[in-house]
Design a protein around this nucleic acid. Structure first.
Lengths: 149, 149
DNA sequence: TTCAATATGCACCTAAAGGAGAGTGAGAAT
DNA sequence: ATTCTCACTCTCCTTTAGGTGCATATTGAA
């Protein structure tokens, strides 16, 4: 049972209400392109990692977020958050105090993407051993020259 | 009803048998890292696009594959296929004829990833209008200086 | 005989991603 | 008076992604 990105009961309820009112787009060629382009923007590692921690921890401020994803640099954190805000995935709340305080949380749209990503995380967790097996098999075959380099 | 990556009945049957025999890994910190790294490798746009057409069309040879994904260059096609083969997602069959004939198809592992990606494609199809709305709202706010650039 | 077809490999180049580190501004703590 | 905090921004630099174009071996078709 994966602990990653498992949604809470409240999250699921909110999501169900939300999904009920959203309509899919008509499937033509222009939409195809938009969908592909959207996938390209959204399926990157920083976005996936940030969505994961925001799903898990709820609202977080900039520095806390950074602590939860230690491998990200300030630059990429800012950049990714800004992009996610633009796509409507996160909401940014500025508290006008000194020192500054800015909080980030997922919107419902962001939460719905989190639910979609859940399947991919679970896939990775479940199949990692097979992938490692495949890698060693492939590398061994390559060392024997059975396979292109 | 999205036409993208909808699995066929046979695909679903094969997948169910397969998933029943695969075990998830134990959830510790080392596994966390491996999972994240795996996600990083697998969640890139070329891999997603190739998995999509291979799910849809079944077995394809190199040039056909290229025709189905016109935006990819030969270099990236080769590179991505090789990487997918190493991860165990596709099987590569060489027919020793002249001119050469090489066919690619998804393994069961690849098909299971395809099923996991399905949710993300459907999310994108369903929510694209909201994302576009969010973008224009954000850009307008930025033009008014309400939001950082 | 010359040509086309196939699945790459290789070399060179540009563009984009990403990292490191310094700077900022105002108030609260020392 | 000085220092510390936060949420950035800016600049400079390195690394990686990705594109373009050429080379190849072989054989059946023109």
């Amino acid at each position: 049972m994966p602990t990653r990105v498992a949604l809470s009961a409240e999250q699921i309820t909110a999501l169900q209400e939300y999904e009920a009112c959203t309509a899919p787009a008509a499937p033509d060629a222009r939409v195809e392109r938009l969908v592909t382009e959207l996938i390209e923007r959204v399926a990157d590692k920083w976005t996936m990692l940030l969505i994961e921690v925001l799903t898990e921890k709820g609202e977080l401020r900039f520095t806390r977020l950074r602590e939860c994803v230690p491998s990200i640099s300030y630059k990429m954190l800012t950049q990714t958050l800004r992009s996610m805000e633009r796509e409507g995935l996160v909401a940014r709340t500025v508290h006008p105090v000194i020192p500054p305080k800015v909080e980030y949380r997922l919107t419902l749209l962001g939460l719905s993407l989190s639910a979609a990503f859940c399947g991919v995380w679970m896939w990775a967790e479940k199949h990692i051993a097979e992938v490692e097996q495949a890698r060693t098999t492939f590398d061994r075959a390559r060392d024997c020259g059975t396979v292109p380099e």
